[in-house]
Design a protein around this nucleic acid. Structure first.
Lengths: 174, 174
DNA sequence: CATACTGATTGTAATATGCAACCGCTTTTT
DNA sequence: AAAAAGCGGTTGCATATTACAATCAGTATG
């Protein structure tokens, strides 16, 4: 396909400007869902199988993902991020930080973004290094606690708080 | 419309995940095109009038833009950015920086993004303050050179270099 | 041997996008 | 005063994309 223009924003829009690409990259990146079924069943937004198949195909074609067979399961494909998609992390974090400020995001689902946004460039770089380890097989070059552990912890705290608030809310109703 | 989920990335995708919204915001933001015809005629990507009308309508409805009549021209509408869209600047810059690295961007059209990305958070904040002055009527709170001047200059330098290279290229062909 | 899981494909309906022509009104030019 | 150009769109039609539901053949598992 011919590009509409050579403007960075336009090319980024042409590559990612649809209703699913960024959401799927998020699932692989932050949810560590790396197979068709894993993405499908954990999709908060309820993607259909044909759309998922089509999107995965185009993300492969555009170099955002690579596919490899699972040695333990003959027709399972494991998808991996590439440097191209890992390099999107700062942009996704910036976009998420904006969304937290201006859109009705839920506290639990915002927790990962909040941690990474507040952690600044250093934490984001460490998270990207972690992704490079998981998806590209590059050794993790830090001694520090892994960002993914911080993210998981923050998510669980936010989830517990949400449940507690829910219980209190129900108690008031009763 | 009901949101698919409360995840920041998903909500951002629902708001901006189409082929035109970000490109139009770019035109208003970096190109200072603020009327229907100005956007239409300066659109590098060649948007159609019905699409432009539909997008402007939805950007208004979602609070990315506001509309005001032009006192000097009875049926001209002037569109302004809102704090919501101005706050997108860091995300757009991060996305553009990614695109410059991984997509075939043109040097001239990349110049604005390069300046703002290399200028860091300080320059980005100053640029946002400039947008707040232009679109929200807030006084520009800095003494420093306006970021828009730096951007314009970088664009013109890049354009001149591109033309020079073009001339050299033609000379070689002859 | 039955059941469920794997990554899909197919059919159909709804929605979005792209293209070109057209519209009523206003401002500028001749 | 008449014509031309500019203004923000709308309308109709063709094509492309997306959504939803059902289905499929090839593994693995109990």
């Amino acid at each position: 396909m011919e590009a509409r223009s050579g403007c960075p924003i336009n090319l980024a829009t042409e590559a990612l400007g649809d209703g699913w690409s960024m959401v799927l990259l998020r699932d692989v990146m932050f949810g560590n869902h790396r197979t068709f079924r894993s993405i499908l069943h954990n999709s908060m937004e309820g993607i259909a199988t044909n759309i998922l198949a089509a999107r995965l195909k185009s993300l492969l074609a555009e170099g955002f993902l690579t596919a490899a067979p699972d040695p333990t399961h003959k027709q399972r494909t494991i998808y991996s991020l590439t440097e191209k998609s890992i390099a999107l992390v700062p942009a996704l974090i910036a976009l998420g930080a904006w969304a937290r400020r201006f859109l009705p995001t839920s506290p639990e689902l915002s927790a990962p973004n909040r941690v990474l946004a507040e952690g600044g460039p250093q934490l984001q770089e460490a998270f990207m290094d972690e992704l490079r380890e998981i998806h590209l097989g590059q050794p993790y070059p830090h001694q520090r606690t892994r960002p993914s552990a911080l993210i998981r912890e923050a998510y669980e705290v936010a989830l517990a708080e949400a449940e507690e608030a829910d219980i209190r809310g129900n108690a008031e109703i009763r």
